[in-house]
Design a binder for these strands. Structure first.
Length: 216
DNA sequence: GGAATGATAGTCT
DNA sequence: GACTATCATTCCG
């Protein structure tokens, strides 16, 4: 089954995730979100990717989290209702996508670190500045990469409700469940770096980082 | 195959 | 003025 992507399906797969499920702790929400679908609708394309790697970030008590120092203009979304997109710009050139969780008023989020591209690969490659036959791994394996592939920026998507039928960016559930979940320390941080709050679909080729870290 | 390093800009103290 | 939840390129072995 090679590149026979059966074209321009307009129906989004699965159903919207239930918001109640995200009114919980970031580590619980992270396990729940793993394996779900990120869907982006554009004027003439449908982008679908399965979330295969996430990290949990708490509010208070988690020095690595953006919300650790309290509410600011930048991280306000984290303190809002669950199921919303917190997009931030980092290192001068990359965007990262988080999904807010916990009830309104409490900070907490799940960082989406890697996707398995399922549909709209040519559009993703174009946004990534790659050729149409680039390896799927290069498209969405990494938090900065997947945002670029989906055209997600702070300017366009920060604060978007991922669980609204009208949103162009959604979190959906097609019934998939990860056969095995690997738990590892979070990546790229300097504080509280040992906490096992990164979750990935074990052995999945699209997970970022060293291969051995992907085994349970 | 693996490790080191520079690019680049928004945000907070 | 320092920091950052990164990526792509470069070098070395």
């Amino acid at each position: 089954m090679s590149a026979f992507v059966s074209g321009e399906t307009t129906a989004s797969p699965g159903t919207l995730l239930d918001r109640v499920l995200l009114e919980t702790r970031p580590d619980m929400a992270a396990r729940l979100i793993l394996g779900k679908l990120l869907v982006r609708r554009t004027k003439d394309a449908l982008l679908v990717g399965r979330i295969v790697e996430v990290e949990a970030y708490f509010g208070e008590g988690d020095p690595a989290a953006h919300a650790a120092a309290g509410r600011t203009a930048r991280n306000a979304v984290l303190f809002g209702p669950p199921g919303h997109a917190y997009v931030y710009f980092i290192y001068g050139m990359h965007s990262c996508l988080n999904i807010s969780c916990e009830p309104t008023g409490q900070a907490g989020s799940v960082l989406v670190r890697a996707l398995e591209p399922l549909q709209g690969l040519s559009q993703m490659a174009a946004w990534r500045g790659l050729g149409p036959h680039a390896s799927p791994r290069l498209l969405t394996s990494g938090p900065g990469r997947l945002c670029q592939a989906f055209g997600i920026t702070r300017a366009t998507h920060n604060g978007v409700d991922l669980l609204s039928a009208n949103s162009e960016l959604q979190l959906r559930d097609d019934g998939y469940e990860a056969p095995d979940i690997a738990t590892t320390p979070r990546i790229g941080i300097t504080k509280a770096a040992e906490r096992p709050l990164r979750f990935a679909v074990a052995g999945h080729p699209c997970v970022s980082g060293p291969a051995r870290a992907n085994r349970g």
